[in-house]
Amino acid sequence: MAEVLVYVDHVDGAVRKPTLELLTLARRVGEPVAVALGNGAGDTAAALAEHGAVKVLTHEAAEYGDYLVVPKVDALQAAVAAVSPAAVLVPSSAEGKEIAARLALRLGSGIITDAVDLEAGDEGPVATQSVFAAAFTTKSRVSKGTPVITVKPNSAAVEAAPAAGAVEALSVTFSAAATGTKVTSRTPRESTGRPELTEAAIVVSGGRGVNGAENFAIIEALADSLGAAVGASRAAVDAGWYPHTNQVGQTGKSVSPQLYIASGISGAIQHRAGMQTSKTIVAINKDAEAPIFELVDYGVVGDLFDVVPQLTEEVKTRKG
């Protein structure tokens, strides 16, 4: 069977969940060969093997941390040359898309970004995308070169599928462009102890209706009672009430959880763009006419300062 390259998103060897989802999708199209780069690359092998990687190509070098994007493109290009894969799959993070784009250009290949599903097809993998703020679903395929496809988090289930996961050192020669953009400092995001926004099964978001940074405590309390991640609308972020890393929407994160709870969010098209593919949508808004109610499975017209704390208490009681 043809091999499929999977770019591994990991933090010092800890593989992030979207990569494991990619392995599930990769197995539909071929045999997954993972590519892990940078500090801790070798430590990824066990998790990758458990989820179906037949091989893990690794390369550690300071360049991956010291320079932006290009060293990783050089490495993936080397991996493509070594493996001649049927496709290359990359997680749809901001960086993942940039890596994928430059790789596609070098390979003379087409690129599809932000796929939410992937199937094998007669003429190569067929990717499903959700476009125009999720108003449409398209199916596309790459028609030239080795398909390069980026896939959004929560697009597939993580499945155990033990495979060999044999570690092989990848040989990489960096291009002249590799050291073009220097990363002069890096401040890792502080962990909140809550699930990663894009990976969470439940997301609880607050908007302008939350009316103040201090009031986000009630959104966080609900999130914690449900084991959820916290999101925010751009209005709440622009007001300085919550960090931009938690913004949901077109210019923030795109989430697709099992359950999305919007409180004090009107449901503007740019917000919908980031949450409309959520399985179950719930909203609390004091305006019965708010467009968010067009999307909901369950909505409560009311003041979030009454409804949210009551919900949190009830969740806690039920969970015992």
Partner: peptide, 10 residues
């Protein structure tokens, strides 16, 4: 470099 095979309103 890519072909859109279908587009359907959600």
């Amino acid at each position: 470099y890519t072909v859109v095979e279908s587009a359907a309103e959600r």
